[in-house]
Simulated assay, not measured.
Amino acid sequence: MHPLSRLALLIPPIRRLHDARDQLLEERDSLALQTRPLGSSPLHHYNACFDAEAMLHRHAARDLRPHPNRITNFLGVLVDPKVLPAILAGREGSIEPIPIPANWHADVAEWAMALRAVEQAQGRFIVIELGCGWGCWMNNTGVAARRLGLAVTLIGVEGDPGHIAYAREATAANGFDLADVIIHHGIAAARSGRALFPRQTPGGADWGLEPIFDATVEQIDEAVRSGACDALPMLSLAEIIGARERIDLLHVDIQGGEAALIAGTLDMLTERVAMLLIGTHSRQIEGELFERLLSVGWILEIERPAILSVGSAAPVVTIDGVQGWRNPALLP
């Protein structure tokens, strides 16, 4: 088989628009933005051991003022509409309400667990966001922690250089010092190595790109030479955490690789991470996470399963799920 033919089998059609994914994102955003009677949205149907909606109300900033060029969310975080122009264009100068049941980015379950981690921190809040995109959870939890008087360390890992540029701009716009922000250009993984990551034009346009692991040296060279992909370092969780003794929140949203990452880093997680917030991309992944984390004593504090579209040959995930876990070894 010709080398480029083998590459075509390995790599999804990167240069084509991800029409199906875009349609699902539009359906999710429509659900979040429509006005519905209380309880009628599927995003209201989560399970929690704490009052998630009260958590959002408790952290909502008061007396917010609009910014002429950005959206201001309920925490006071400034968001540039260019990070998702299909949804956010034209909303400059607006102030978003508390996202119950959701906003354009996340639902109440995910927001509540992220803020719960902020409340459990002492002195300094340290967050690691794997697949950080524009730095959503770094910025949101960082701003909430700063309002509580905590010092912050914001750490992100991202494969797309366009998204990294957005993240750097967002942390600067939200008033974080360069010394408090660390963004790695690479792929979060259970082990070190190299992975392929699709190259997109323009940079930052697609939010659902998936890394390709376990390619051979020849396949990596072919993909880079063709311009379809970049070869990026696979960064182990141990490398990302470094010498830090405690991470207050690890946010994981790596497009289907969540279960493998957790399985390969359980000891490190239990030793160093206080809370886990995981975006899940299938019911199978959710089951694997239950099995792995419960077996070593982690406590599930909030969850909303992935929402499916059924009736075709196979169920399709239309809205990713959320799981929030507490580590009793660090937070009894």
Rank of each mutant, 00 (worst) to 15 (best):
S282M: 03
D80P: 01
Y166F: 15
D177F: 06
I100C: 03
S5V: 09
R58Y: 09
P97Q: 08
I182F: 10
G311C: 03
L249V: 09
A329R: 09
A20M: 02
R116G: 06
H44L: 01
L308S: 05
I71F: 03
L88V: 11
P161C: 07
L249Q: 13
E303H: 10
D230Y: 11
G287A: 09
H2I: 04
L330S: 14
E92W: 07
L88R: 14
L249M: 11
Q219N: 13
A205I: 13
W298P: 07
R147W: 02
D180V: 01
I183Y: 01
G257H: 15
E286T: 06
D107Y: 03
A86G: 13
L130N: 05
L4Q: 08
A8Q: 09
G287Y: 02
H281V: 00
T141R: 05
G131I: 12
R168T: 00
A89L: 13
R191H: 09
I285V: 12
E27D: 11
S226F: 04
A215Y: 11
R146T: 12
P81R: 05
G193P: 02
A54H: 07
Y46S: 08
L150I: 11
I98M: 12
G162P: 11
I71C: 12
A117R: 07
L237K: 06
H163S: 11
E258D: 02
E245H: 09
A205F: 11
V322L: 11
W137Y: 07
D63M: 01
F50A: 05
C49N: 05
A114R: 04
L237A: 12
D19A: 04
L7D: 07
A205P: 02
R124C: 13
G39K: 05
S282E: 05
L232Q: 00
T141E: 03
G257I: 15
E218V: 12
I285F: 01
G203C: 12
L17K: 06
L235C: 01
A121T: 14
A259V: 05
I187C: 00
